[in-house]
Design a protein around this nucleic acid. Structure first.
Length: 575
RNA sequence: GGGCCCGUGGCUUAGUCAGGAUAUAGCACCGGCCUUCUAAGCCGGUGGUCGAGGGUUCAAAUCCCCCCGGGUCCGCCA
């Protein structure tokens, strides 16, 4: 089985000269601009759109020009096409009514193949000039990750993989909230209840946390003990600090284990308490930019940004608030990268906006934030405190179990180890894909029957296409000697065209930070490969044709593998 | 009450930021395809007033206004 490749090369990259579709687009832009100039039409926005089914690239610039030139669009289109020059990547251009359609050449397809074979796992490099700090997950260490946290993790981890595929240097960080009320409750719970040593640390922590919450609700006077713990921590009491640290570290062990099984990793865990020493400086600086004092507390008026509420950056008792520590964290990050990206739940929108504005006041740009809406249960929203949640561990366990049944059904002769290994890969792939395919700003409802349903075009569908490609290649040797002119079937061209678009997809994601386009692209690519596979025999074809089709299979497998790696889904060779 | 987000076939969903030619897939349903590289697959079919109403535009799922339905935020919490 192919190992997932978490270690990407971190050096900076060449430019996008090898990204075929992007180069094609550039050439079309050039030809079109020249043609417009020859016609003495204004050339600004070329209005290029992608409309599969009609052409590889279409310009609708004629509509924009029509009102300026007082000419019908189709006449403009005809005239433009007549003045169009030529390029090796462009087979032809034609006016279809008002539309100016461009088609890729055979050369384009041939070059696309050789670029893929050449670049292999680096295929997809587009712009490597960014040094990125990407913060994601950052769940409070008061219990196990639930399926909502995992949406954050999977979006963040996939973004990291895409940015690295693009050639960026990326450091992922988990911001550990280790000094809040919730952690104080955990610490208090550990002092008052027995810890279950039989279960995973994060689950054991949740038990204690839930009990502590119930107890405090029953006897509100105990809140004083919680408050005292927090005050002693912030005033530098080493014994209390040790208790907090141990509790957090303990829970984090379990969380980390879950993340690892999801193929999610963090380069660095940054503890909130590390910024306590920076706060006086930050607050002083904010004062210079207009923060005002009131009864010893410190506020920033953000009404000029349309935020009605004042942001409190220091309490009247002198202690710090979360927002200020978050500002300090971002100031620190900003000094270490040229792109800050945070993945946050949509409930943090106002906070993030406030922190962003404060950072702008400090002349540090606001981070780019990817928000995602909640994952809820059919019976309502999840809550660690009330113990109402579906843990990631539970989901993974059941999904993997179900995957094993499926593997066992289809491949009864495999060994238990092989079946388990495939089941693991398929289960995790299905889970990650499901959380990624829905655009981040849509709320999701977690549903067991859907989570366990593999009869859909999800992660396993992609893995299956990859396994099919692998299965052909394992039976032969490809010597990189082939004639691309023999690849003329519609299904073959479709696969190559899609493969050629991969760098453009990666570029889009690094720009817009929206990962759901990758799931759509992956599905289309797998589908195209399956169609090719169904209609075009490879191993049994005539020697010349066989070599050409092998080149296609190798290329498609490279792109499928790179896509799967970006999605954090294991590209299996057999399933 | 105010801010932000969502509303696309029976169910789930792409596309909305950067308006253009037949609105994307899956599930479910109906009908085909395994002596040929793994059928977790392929081919075909049924099913849509893109929440409602106005507006802008040659052109609106996409932009603007208003309304309805759902989510979420509005702590000297984190």
């Amino acid at each position: 089985m192919a190992a997932l490749q978490p270690s990407y090369v971190l050096q900076s990259t060449n430019t996008n000269g090898d990204a075929m579709f992007l180069t094609f687009r550039e050439q079309v832009e050039k030809l079109l601009t020249e043609a417009l100039e020859k016609c003495e039409y204004p050339s600004g926005d070329l209005a290029l759109v992608v409309k599969p089914g009609y052409a590889d690239l279409t310009s609708i610039v004629t509509f924009k020009l029509a009102s300026i030139l007082k000419l019908p669009p189709h006449e403009i289109a005809r005239n433009v096409v007549q003045h169009l020059g030529s390029d090796v990547l462009v087979a032809r251009a034609e006016a279809a009514g008002p539309y100016v359609n461009f088609f890729v050449s055979a050369d384009y397809l041939h070059r696309a193949l050789s670029v893929i074979l050449e670049e292999d796992q680096n295929y997809g490099r587009v712009n490597g000039d960014h040094i990125v700090i990407l913060e994601h997950t950052s769940a409070n260490p008061n219990g196990p990750l639930h399926i909502g946290h995992v949406r954050n993790s999977v979006i963040g981890d996939t973004l990291m993989r895409c940015l690295k595929q693009a050639g960026c240097r990326v450091e992922t960080q988990y911001y550990v909230n280790n000094m809040g009320r919730q952690i104080a409750l955990v610490v208090w719970g550990l002092m008052n209840f027995e810890l279950n040593g039989e279960i995973k640390p994060d689950h054991a922590t949740a038990e204690v946390y839930i009990k502590a919450n119930a107890e405090v609700e029953l006897h509100p006077t105990k809140l004083n003990e919680i408050r005292e713990l927090m005050q002693r921590f912030e005033s530098g009491d080493q014994d209390v600090a040790r208790l907090f640290e141990d509790a957090v570290e303990f829970c984090l062990q379990g969380i980390n284990q879950t993340l690892k099984s999801l193929h999610v990793s963090h380069d660095r865990f940054v503890w909130e308490s590390e910024f306590l020493d920076d706060l006086d400086g930050i607050i002083a600086e904010l004062r210079d930019y207009g923060a005002t004092e009131n009864d010893g507390s410190m506020h920033i008026d953000l009404s000029s940004f349309g935020i009605g509420k004042n942001l409190v950056v220091r309490r009247s008792d002198g202690t710090s608030v979360y927002a200020t520590r978050d500002i300090a964290y971002h100031v620190w990050k900003a000094g270490r990268c040229n792109r800050m990206i945070d993945v946050l739940g949509a409930d943090h929108k106002l906070n993030a906006l406030q922190v962003g504005k404060a950072l702008e006041l400090l002349n540090i740009g606001a981070p780019e934030v990817v928000f995602f809406e909640f994952v809820s249960l059919p019976e309502g929203s999840m809550s660690t405190r009330r113990g109402h949640f579906v843990s990631a561990d539970e989901v993974l366990e059941k999904v993997t179990e179900k995957a094993y049944e499926e593997v066992d059904k289809r491949r009864p002769t495999l060994s238990v180890e092989e079946k388990s290994s495939i089941a693991q890969a398929v289960g995790i792939g299905a889970t990650r894909y499901d959380l990624l395919r829905v655009s981040a700003d849509k709320p999701m409802v977690f549903n067991w029957s859907e989570a366990l349903d593999f009869e859909r075009q999800g992660g396993p569908f992609l893995q299956y296409a990859h396994a099919r490609a692998s299965n052909i290649l394992v039976k032969t040797i490809f010597d990189n000697n082939y004639d691309p002119n023999l690849l003329t079937d519609e299904s073959e061209i479709k696969v190559i065209k899609l493969c050629a678009k991969f760098p453009a997809v990666i570029e889009d994601i690094t720009k817009n930070l929206s990962v759901s386009v990758l799931t759509s692209y992956a599905r289309e690519l797998a589908e195209a490969f399956n169609q090719f596979y169904r209609f075009m025999p490879v191993l049994s074809a005539e020697p010349e044709v066989r070599r050409a089709r092998l080149a296609l299979v190798v290329s498609a497998r490279i792109v499928l593998r790179n896509v799967l790696n970006c999605l954090g889904i294991e590209p299996v060779d057999s399933m």
